[in-house]
Write a protein that binds this DNA or RNA. Structure first.
Length: 474
DNA sequence: TACATCGGACATTCAAGTGC
DNA sequence: CACTTGAATGTCCGATGTAA
């Protein structure tokens, strides 16, 4: 995955993601020659300005690393001139915009592996992978953290191209900072809610300090970078401080960009995520020939996965607020509930519940013969159409006017890409069988409950009555 | 503006089911 | 018996309401 020595890797895994590296640790990236030749105007001064701010957040110096888990950064296209790169300007924010969004637990002391690879995914074989890949592209050095808290994950298009820099949310600072307990890091408290990164194709990589041990712990996806695409959209200050590495788009180019962007957005809304892309945040095609594929790849627009503690304290549980693994947790400390901050008790799962037959994947060895339709199952898959992957119903059901295969997605879920291993029933779980057709479903009944569609395996209670969120669509 | 409340989206767990 | 599946269960986002 990366080239760091194991010891160094371990160290970085134990470091908080937002650690600010001492400046002497900065190293030069091996940037493309075109970058190396580039001379910035006055980037360092801006960087210094941020480092001196009261709220810290000097993440403008936080660079994409060749070592860390900044998978969202690793997704950066390597070609800054590629128009598609600007899609990364789709500003994605951490799923939590609240003050707890950063996940205090990820910054809490004593939590090794805090953040991405820690905690709840420990028993899983794959989910964390999506966030664990190590970026290697020199272009990553273009990455900067922007402390602006303005961006929302689902920004309107009008906000995609320009994100005002250097804005901060003063009221949220410090509340979840653990920097006091981590003196080895330069103390730059941060507001979790106001943390946003930006991707500046206009800033020269070699002028930025690199984070040699970037720990992708808490929220590398909390912020998909936003891109000041057009020069006229940038604040004057920034125009002075950054020389354009990427030439301003012409009107025609901009129009094309908007068109392509619209295509990407609509694709994201309607296209199931490609199941084979197990690391949606880590692998971004860089070839120009893949431009359209990039644009239509919803993975680039994905909302970051929410992480949660294994066991919230009773106070946070009651308040339905984010907890951390510290006891007392950060929230209880904040509200003076330290004495009552104890782990909540969990129910013991009921046993002996009969479950219906499961959908099974077709082994890869049998995929080759799938087109031959040698089995009824496979021919059903063909009949049901390539978009489902799952066989919707028995053949006898295909003629039914109420069949789910009349709908774009007939089966229980479509996974947007993460959690590829779990068969998760999470809300994003639009599964990806439509791309690999690996699943062979059992016979299904299809029913509607209200506005939701349920595809229920025989022998399984109707999920509409089960109180479960699985197997239904919004 | 801060905080409380809470519906429901999202994440995780783990027993049942499956197949070698 | 390892692996998969998916319902049960838990977490907590974010909208809304209320009080100061």
């Amino acid at each position: 995955m990366n080239n760091i020595p194991p010891q160094q890797q371990q160290q970085q895994d134990q470091q908080p993601f937002f650690k600010q590296e001492p400046q002497q640790e900065s190293i030069q990236l091996s940037a493309p020659q075109s970058y190396q030749n580039f001379q910035p105007l006055s980037y360092p001064s801006q960087q210094q300005q941020h480092q001196q701010s009261n709220h810290g957040q000097s993440y403008n110096s936080l660079q994409g690393s060749s070592t860390g888990n900044l998978s969202s950064f690793s997704a950066m296209p390597s070609n800054p001139y590629n128009l598609n790169n600007h899609l990364m300007g789709l500003s994605m924010q951490n799923g939590s915009s609240s003050s707890s969004g950063l996940g205090a637990s990820s910054l809490a002391p004593g939590h090794n592996n805090s953040g991405l690879m820690s905690g709840a995914n420990s028993g899983s074989t794959t989910p964390s992978m999506a966030y664990a890949s190590a970026p290697s592209s020199p272009i990553l050095s273009n990455l900067q953290y922007n402390p602006s808290g303005n961006s929302q994950y689902a920004q309107s298009n009008s906000n995609l191209y320009y994100q005002q820099q250097n804005q901060q949310h003063p009221q949220h600072s410090n509340q979840y900072s653990y920097h006091n307990q981590q003196p080895q890091h330069q103390s730059q408290s941060m507001s979790s809610s106001s943390l946003t990164s930006s991707f500046y194709p206009t800033s020269p990589p070699h002028q930025h300090q690199q984070q040699p041990q970037q720990n992708g712990s808490s929220t590398p996806f909390s912020s998909m970078p936003s891109t000041p695409l057009r020069q006229q959209h940038q604040p004057p200050q920034q125009q002075q401080q950054y020389a354009p590495l990427v030439p301003p788009l012409s009107d025609a180019q901009y129009a094309q960009y908007r068109q392509l962007l619209g295509s990407a957005l609509s694709s994201a809304a309607s296209t199931p995520y490609h199941s084979n892309q197990s690391t949606p945040y880590s692998s971004m095609p860089t070839s120009p020939t893949l431009e359209h594929q990039q644009l239509s790849d919803p993975s680039m627009l994905q909302k970051p996965k929410r992480r949660q503690v294994k066991n919230a304290c009773v106070n946070c549980q009651k308040a339905c607020k984010k907890c951390d693994e510290g006891r007392p947790c950060t929230r209880c400390i904040k509200y003076g509930l330290t004495e009552t901050c104890v782990d909540s008790t969990r129910k013991v799962r009921k046993k002996g519940i009969k479950r219906g037959p499961y959908k099974r994947k077709i082994p890869p060895s049998q995929l080759g013969s799938a087109s031959a339709s040698t089995t009824p199952v496979l021919s059903h898959a063909v009949l049901a159409g390539p978009s489902t992957g799952y066989m919707s119903e028995p053949v006898t059901a295909l003629n039914s006017p109420t069949q789910s295969h009349m709908l774009p997605f007939t089966s229980s879920s479509m996974n947007f890409g993460y959690n590829a291993n779990s068969g998760s029933n999470s809300g994003y779980s639009f599964q990806t069988q439509s791309m690999d057709n690996n699943y062979v479903p059992p016979p299904y009944t299809t029913s509607y409950s209200g506005s939701s569609l349920y595809s229920t395996p025989y022998g399984v209670n109707d999920p509409a009555n089960a109180g479960s969120s699985s197997n239904h669509f919004p």
